[in-house]
């Protein structure tokens, strides 16, 4: 007779792990990060390293405080994903303490005060970003001009000086590199009473979106398609987000092309593609059912445009995501599918 150790079914290894999912997300960000670095210099790498460092440090401290095991949660990859997404939202030469403050709010407040991994109501990366966006508008709006519009991108040396030393306005003219993002340009132009088509003559606008920015959007789109292909994210959120923006912007544009930019321009500028594939698809703070995800994505798209059209900020993806995070539990509740046989 031989005895065996018993354990409950299923007796098969899991198809995937949280760490695997997070690694895939990071992998899918690679094209976007690469294009970002090509357009704006190595600042993004420095920002990712700094933000990840702070995120992991806060994560470890809070896990320690809460008496949770460190190893499984530090290696699950969620903190690094949040840090990377945050880094992609801020100007690449922003001072280091921006990331520190943001990661404090992301990891300590938004994540661990709500119960840690899986329990956060709000998307941590967006909480961190919105806190610093509201608190430090000067540092957060000083975007450098992309490669095509400037004499070149700063080297690693200048980047580190800018980020760590705070020497943003260097005598050799890093200042000259900063300028308006396409959405800023539209906003300021319309506020000054110029008609939209004159505003769009500016060199910051390229073939379909903002000069340089359209490449970034495309790279995030490629990463997003990769996630879809690997089954890490599902189609509902990106399709609903981009679809609702396309439809709403198209209607607005048809009604008044003097004031409202085209649907394609909207989709490809700001953080919309990144948001649609990487941020609104965050499972923890989003909806879980298929129909719920459609509602969630559409909400993000519509709110983004509402903020862009009538709000106080040129881009609204982060606010839209946070607002929909609030609505997610209710959306999940009302979109619950009918159970088999009932």
């Amino acid at each position: 007779m031989r005895t065996f150790h018993a354990a409950a079914a299923p007796h098969l290894p899991s198809k995937r792990t949280v760490r695997g999912v997070m690694s895939q997300v990071l992998l899918a960000l690679v094209p976007g990060i690469a294009v970002h670095a090509w357009l704006f210099g190595p600042g993004i790498f420095v920002q990712i390293v700094i933000a990840s460092g702070f995120a992991l440090a806060f994560e470890a401290a809070l896990l320690r405080l809460r008496g949770r095991p460190l190893a499984p949660f530090l290696t699950d990859g969620s903190a690094v994903v949040a840090a990377s997404l945050f880094a992609l939202c801020i100007p690449p030469l922003a001072p280091w303490w921006i990331a520190a403050v943001a990661m404090f709010f992301a990891i300590v407040i938004a994540k661990h005060c709500f119960g840690g991994l899986g329990h956060n109501v709000f998307n941590p990366a967006m909480v961190g970003y919105v806190v610093v966006l509201i608190s430090f508008p000067l540092q957060l709006t000083r975007w450098p001009l992309p490669r095509e519009l400037s004499s070149g991108t700063p080297g690693l040396d200048a980047t580190l000086q800018a980020i760590l030393g705070g020497r943003v306005i260097a005598p050799d003219g890093i200042d000259a590199l900063t300028g308006a993002t396409p959405l800023d340009a539209i906003r300021t132009g319309l506020a000054e009473g110029r008609p939209l088509d004159t505003v769009l003559q500016s060199p910051v606008f390229g073939a379909v979106g903002g000069t340089g920015w359209e490449w970034l959007a495309a790279a995030f789109g490629i990463g997003g398609l990769y996630l879809l292909w690997r089954g890490i994210i599902r189609w509902q959120v990106p399709v609903a987000t981009l679809g609702s923006v396309l439809v709403m912007a198209l209607v607005a544009w048809v009604l008044n092309p003097e004031t409202y930019p085209s649907a394609v321009l909207h989709c490809l500028s700001g953080g919309l593609v990144l948001g649609a594939f990487f941020i609104a698809t965050d499972p923890v703070s989003g909806c879980a059912s298929g129909r719920g995800r459609l509602v969630f994505g559409a909400g993000v798209g519509v709110l983004t445009l509402v903020i862009r059209y009538w709000g106080g900020y040129p881009d609204g993806v982060a606010f839209a995501v946070l607002l929909m995070n609030m609505a997610a539990p209710l959306v999940d509740r009302v979109t619950r599918p009918r159970v088999y046989g009932t």
């Binding site: 007796h11 098969l12 899991s14 949280v18 999912v21 499984p72 699950d76 899986g118 499972p283």
Partner: peptide, 15 residues
């Protein structure tokens, strides 16, 4: 053939 015994994490509501 089987899953490693450790490794349970909180639900991330991936659906």
């Amino acid at each position: 053939d089987m899953r490693p015994p450790q490794g349970e994490l909180p639900c991330i509501r991936c659906g």
